[in-house]
C-alpha cells in the first residue's frame, strides 16, 4: 500500500473533501438548477395546458356561435314564413274583396245597361208607332182615325185592348209569370196584364226580337203569343 501511495490519512482527507463538496454543490448548484428544470417543465406543461384549454374554449365558442347563428336563421325563416303567410291571406282577402267589388260593379253596370236599353226602347216606341202609321197610311191610302191607329198599334205591341189581354186566354191565378214584350210596356198596360192574367206577380222583360205581341212564361209553361211566332206559323203553313 505504501508503494502505491495509499495512505489512510490522505484517504480520509479525500473522503471528507468529497463529503464537503457533495453537500455544498448539492445545496448551491443542484438544488437551484433542479428547481429551475422543474419550474421550466411546469411552465411548459402549464403553457400546453393553457393552450389546450384555450383551444377548447375557442371550439366551444365557435360551436355556440354556430348554434346562435342557426337559431337566428331558423327564427328569421319562421318570421319570413309567417309574414308571407299573412301577406298571402291579406292578399287573398283583398283579392276576394276586389273581385266582389268588381262583380258588384259589373252587376250594376249590367243593370244600368239594361235600364238604359229599356229607356232607349221606350223612347223609340212612339217613333216606331209614327213610322208604322205613316207606312200604313201609304199602304191603305187613307188616313184612319189617329186615335184608332194608336190603339191598334198599342194592341199590336202589347196584346192589350181596352184593359184586356186579347192574345192570351188562359189565366194564371196565384202564379208568378214572366211577360216578354217587344217594346217596354206602359204602367197601365202592365197593370192591365197583371189584372187580366190574375197572376200573383208579373216580371216584365223586353225582347225586340219577338216583334210584337206577348210571351207569357209561368214555371215551365210557355204561351207564345208573339208576332214572330205567328209569322213563323204562317210561313210554315204557306210552305
Amino acid at each position: 500500500m505504501e508503494g502505491l501511495g495509499i495512505n489512510l490519512g490522505y484517504l480520509l482527507v479525500q473522503i471528507f473533501n468529497f463529503g464537503i463538496m457533495f453537500v455544498v454543490l448539492k445545496e448551491w448548484a443542484y438544488k437551484p438548477i433542479l428547481n429551475m428544470l422543474e419550474t421550466r417543465r411546469e411552465t411548459i406543461a402549464r403553457g400546453l395546458e393553457d393552450a389546450r384549454v384555450a383551444a377548447e374554449a375557442r371550439a366551444n365558442a365557435e360551436q355556440k356561435a354556430q348554434e346562435i347563428l342557426a337559431e337566428a336563421q331558423a327564427k328569421a325563416a319562421e318570421v319570413v314564413r309567417a309574414a308571407s303567410e299573412r301577406a298571402g291571406e291579406v292578399g287573398k282577402e283583398v283579392k276576394a274583396e276586389a273581385e266582389a267589388e268588381a262583380a258588384k260593379i259589373l252587376e250594376r253596370a249590367r243593370a244600368d245597361a239594361e235600364t238604359e236599353k229599356e229607356r232607349v226602347l221606350a223612347d223609340l216606341r212612339p217613333q216606331v208607332a209614327a213610322l208604322a202609321i205613316a207606312a200604313a197610311q201609304k199602304l191603305v191610302g187613307e188616313a184612319l182615325d189617329e186615335k184608332r191607329q194608336r190603339a191598334l198599334l198599342d194592341e199590336f205591341f202589347s196584346g192589350v185592348k181596352s184593359g184586356k189581354v186579347v192574345v192570351v186566354e188562359e189565366t194564371f191565378a196565384g202564379q208568378d209569370v214572366t211577360v216578354v214584350s217587344a217594346l217596354p210596356l206602359s204602367n197601365e198596360e202592365q197593370a192591365a196584364i197583371q189584372k187580366d192574367l190574375g197572376a200573383a206577380g208579373v216580371n216584365f222583360t223586353v225582347d225586340p226580337k219577338i216583334l210584337g205581341g206577348l210571351i207569357v212564361k209561368a214555371g215551365d209553361r210557355v204561351l207564345d203569343a208573339s208576332v214572330a211566332a205567328r209569322l213563323e206559323g204562317m210561313r210554315a203553313a204557306i210552305a
Partner: peptide, 17 residues
C-alpha cells in the same frame, strides 16, 4: 467548483429561477 456553485447560487438567488 466552489466558485461555480457560488455563482450559480447567487444568480439563482438574484435572478429568480
Amino acid at each position: 467548483l466552489l466558485l461555480l456553485a457560488f455563482s450559480i447560487r447567487q444568480q439563482a438567488k438574484n435572478g429568480g429561477l
